[in-house]
């Protein structure tokens, strides 16, 4: 799952940063009076560090730009006729045009709002987010997703919208493909 990868990578990077700081801290005690030679060595290392960062961060930066959620080509991930759901957010309820969908067939959610900004977050049966977009007044955002698992999915509001923001939920069912 993407969230798990993100957590692991973030933790690893934060620990690497912590390692750098601990290293300098542990070696801060005995003074090297001449700073210029030390600085020269540090600058040489910095150049390598810079190019290392470019390589390590550059690859995922570019790679993750493939298959963006905005791309209409995502409907090709599934097969069969596209299922369309119109979703409208209101303070504090969701209006869904369909509440029964099929797994394996692409779904296109056309999301908007009848009043203020809301966030249309789709949670799988394990309560993990699988897709989202913002529901904005006067704008229709399109989410394309193909469900691979059957079960009950929930929609939670992911943009603060006032007093009952946390209660603004809806449900739909994804059934096995007929």
């Amino acid at each position: 799952m993407l969230q798990h990868i993100v957590w692991t990578v973030s933790l690893a990077l934060m620990m690497l940063v912590g390692f750098g700081w601990s290293f300098a801290l542990l070696r801060s005690g005995i003074r090297e009076e001449e700073f210029a030679p030390l600085q020269k060595r540090a600058y040489r290392l910095r150049t390598r560090f810079f190019w290392g960062l470019v390589a390590v961060f550059g690859v995922p930066m570019v790679y993750t730009l493939i298959d963006l959620p905005y791309d209409a080509v995502r409907v090709a991930e599934g097969s069969g006729a596209v299922q369309e759901v119109r979703a409208t957010g209101h303070m504090w309820r969701w209006e869904l045009s369909e509440n029964r969908l099929e797994a394996g067939r692409p779904v296109v959610f056309r999301v908007t709002s009848g009043d203020v900004n809301h966030g249309f977050g789709i949670y799988d049966p394990d309560m993990k987010i699988v897709a989202q977009t913002q529901a904005m007044p006067g704008v229709t955002n399109t989410v394309r997703h193909t469900f691979t698992r059957a079960g009950t999915y929930r929609v939670l509001c992911l943009e603060y919208c006032g007093l009952a923001h946390h209660d603004m939920t809806a449900e739909f069912t994804v059934g096995e493909r007929s």
Binding site: V6, V17, G119
Partner: peptide
């Protein structure tokens, strides 16, 4: 340290595909 360490989960969240499941 805090600034540098905090930048790690921040830039990862700014990755569009990650943001799709972690925004807000």
């Amino acid at each position: 340290f805090g600034w540098a360490a905090g930048a790690m989960p921040a830039f990862i969240d700014g990755t569009i595909r990650v943001n799709y499941v972690m925004h807000n």
